[in-house]
Design a protein around this nucleic acid. Structure first.
Lengths: 197, 197
DNA sequence: TTCTGCATTCAGATGATTTTAAATGATCAC
DNA sequence: GTGATCATTTAAAATCATCTGAATGCAGAA
C-alpha cells in the first residue's frame, strides 16, 4: 500500500510544508498548525499522529494540540481505520473551501468582537450633541469604520459560497465585470522600493 | 484652535484605540502601529510625536519606529507646519484605501514570495514522470494551491481599486449579483459552538 | 481486574517579537 | 563655531506565543 516516493517528490513535499507553514503565519495560523495542514493536504491517504510527529519533528503535545485545533476549525477530519485504535487524519482538499473556513474563523474570532465593541462605543456617543468639530469628525470616522466592517463581512459571505474549485471560471467572469466597472484604476503603488535590505 | 473634548469623546477615543490595536494584530500589524494609526485616523488634525507618545504612553523610540513603518506603508503622511520644525503626522482617512494598502502590503510581503517558491517547486516536479499515484496527486494539489493564489491575487487587484467610500453602493450591487448567481448557498458552518471558554 | 497503547493536558523552557531607554545623528538658531 | 531640538538607531529588557516532555486520562484486551 505504501508507495515509494522519488527524491524530487520528497524534496518538493518538504518545501511545500515549509512554505505553507510560513504562509500560515500570514493568516493568523501558527506555523505548526500550517505545516500539519500542508502535510495532510499533500498526502492522499490519512496519517496518524506518530507519522506526523516524525515527518515534522515535533513533540506529541504539539502535534496533538494543533491537530485538534485544525479539527475544530473543520480543516482536518478524523478517520478511523477498522481494526486500528489509532486516530488517522485527513485534510479538506478543496482550496476554496479551505479558504472559506479560514476566513470564517478569522471573522468570528477577530473581527466580530471588535465590531460589537465599536458599535457599543458608537452608542455611547450617539445620545450626545457633538460639542465640537473634532467630535463630529471622530464620530463619523467610527461610523465609517463600522460600515466598512459590515460591508466587508457581507461581501465575504456573498463571495465565499460562490467560489469553489467547481466554479473558478465564474469568479473570473465576475472579476472581469468588476474590473470593467472600475473606471478609476486606482491600485495604490507601493511607496518604497525595498531600498535597503 | 485646540478644541475641548467631552468626557464621552475621550473615553470613546481610548476604546477605539484599544480595539483598533487589537484588530491590527489580526492583520499582521503590531499593536502600537495599530494604535498610532487609530489615533491619527480618529483625529482631524495632524499630531506630533510628543503628543502621540503622551496619548499612548509609549517611548519615543517605539513611536518613531512605528510611525515610520506606517509612513512606509503609506497609511500615514508627514505634514509640515510652517514655522515649526517638528514633524506632524496624519492618517489616510478613507477606510477602503486603507484596507487596500494593508492587503497590498500583505500580498507583497507574504503571499508573493511563497507563490514564487511554490511555482519553482512545481517546475522541479514538472519534468519528472510521476512514479506513483500519490506523486500525481501531490502535484495536482500544489497546482491547485498556486492557481488559488493566482486567482486570489487577481481578484484582490480587481476588487480593491473598485471600492472606496465613493462607490460602496456599487459594491453592494456586485455583492447582490454574486449572491444571486450563487445557487448552492454553501457557507461552511462553524463546527463547534464555543463549547468551552 | 490490570496492562497496554494511545490521546490529552499542563507547567515550565524556549524562542520570537515588541518595547524601552540611552546613545547618536541631523538640522537649525544663534 | 555652540547649544537646542527633534529624529533615528541600538542593545538590552520585558512581554508574549509556542513547544516540549513528563504526567495523567481513558478505552479496549487479556
Amino acid at each position: 500500500m505504501e508507495d515509494q516516493k522519488s527524491a524530487a517528490h520528497t524534496k518538493a513535499l518538504k518545501q511545500f510544508i515549509v512554505y505553507w507553514g510560513e504562509m500560515a503565519s500570514a493568516w493568523g495560523i501558527n506555523k505548526t498548525m500550517g505545516q500539519i495542514h500542508a502535510l495532510l493536504y499533500a498526502e492522499s491517504r490519512p496519517l496518524d499522529t506518530d507519522t506526523i510527529m516524525a515527518e515534522l519533528t515535533i513533540s506529541r503535545g504539539n502535534a496533538n494540540m494543533n491537530i485538534r485545533k485544525l479539527e475544530q476549525w473543520g480543516l482536518v477530519h478524523k478517520v478511523n481505520i477498522k481494526g486500528d485504535r489509532k486516530d488517522y487524519y485527513t485534510a479538506e482538499k478543496d482550496v476554496w473551501t479551505t479558504a472559506a473556513i479560514i476566513i470564517r474563523e478569522r471573522q468570528q474570532r477577530e473581527i466580530d468582537p471588535i465590531k460589537k465593541n465599536l458599535t457599543e462605543c458608537l452608542d455611547t456617543l450617539a445620545g450626545l450633541q457633538p460639542s465640537s468639530e473634532s467630535e463630529k469628525i471622530f464620530h463619523q470616522r467610527i461610523e465609517g469604520f463600522v460600515a466598512f466592517l459590515d460591508l466587508f463581512e457581507d461581501f465575504t459571505k456573498s463571495m465565499l459560497p460562490y467560489v469553489s474549485e467547481k466554479n473558478v471560471a465564474s469568479l473570473r467572469r465576475l472579476t472581469k465585470i468588476a474590473r470593467m466597472k472600475s473606471n478609476d484604476q486606482y491600485f495604490p503603488p507601493s511607496p518604497y522600493n525595498k531600498e535597503n535590505e
